[in-house]
Design a protein around this nucleic acid. Structure first.
Lengths: 140, 140
DNA sequence: CCGTTTCCCATTGACGCCCATGTGGTCCCA
DNA sequence: TGGGACCACATGGGCGTCAATGGGAAACGG
């Protein structure tokens, strides 16, 4: 069962790499996931990361629509244009590319956040703020 | 499996050439594609690029319509009249012709955007704006 | 014959593979 | 129960390879 939980902040090194938390890596390993589908999230300034089936699931939503419809084009723009496959290096680290930085505002630290069937990369302060906002939103 | 993903911006050199991202090139190579069919996109100010089968697929769409219908005429005008075949040079670079510049507004940088079975060339700022608009459009 | 395109080579910087280090936590045993 | 060996994990850095880019020169076409 794939279920990413909890959050932690790791440091980006001088070469722009960051260690993915071991707990997340072991989940990926047990699901035998090599290629990580990473896309610029639809609602948050965060990168969502999951296995290839995450992309497949999103593509299903495109296929049902007329290929020339604005709806399908809009989805493809985000799902295909806003997504990449990435791999971890041998130590389980991820390159923090411009693709990630420009969208999230990440500079030198990354917050890894479990989201159930996937996890996300956040700029740490933005994550703090979003978490706080979510908590307050529940009270109402 | 042919699946173009992600986006990145490359620079046009003094001779008007631009490097196609290596990830896109490797997909083309694995599909053994030499000639690139390029056409002015139907919905965005961008050039869509794919293998010859992309043209075939569009032509299929024309055939199913009544050959004298305004619909079929319009499609053919765009698919045939607005399309060209291009090739990459030995280093995997593309000549940015006037055909591309005038339709997209591209001047000195090109945004390459994966769209699944094909990819697109955008003027970088226009791409940013379109992506942002697509994201906001999803909320509704 | 001249301007444009393609080929070829050089440079630079980024990325992936490999190995080393530090630190916190756990387990074992006296 | 205190100390020490050990281990897992985050992190640092050397180095080779490849991609992106620049520019000279040949090939091509009008």
């Amino acid at each position: 069962m794939i279920r990413f939980l909890s959050n932690s902040v790791n440091r980006i090194d001088a070469k722009g790499r960051v260690s993915v938390p071991a707990s997340f890596r072991s989940i990926l390993a047990s699901a035998d996931v090599q290629d990580l589908y990473c896309f610029q999230d639809f609602v948050f300034p965060a990168i969502s990361v999951g296995g290839p089936e995450l992309l497949t699931r999103l593509e299903k939503r495109i296929e049902v629509a007329d290929p020339f419809s604005p709806e399908a084009n809009r989805m493809s723009l985000l799902v295909h244009g806003g997504g990449v496959f990435m791999r971890l290096d041998q130590e389980g680290r991820l390159m923090v590319t411009d693709f990630i930085r420009s969208f999230t505002g990440i500079t030198d630290h990354v917050a890894f956040v479990g989201r159930g069937d996937h996890f996300q990369l956040w700029q740490p302060e933005a994550w703090e703020a979003a978490q706080k906002a979510a908590r307050e939103g529940l009270g109402r």
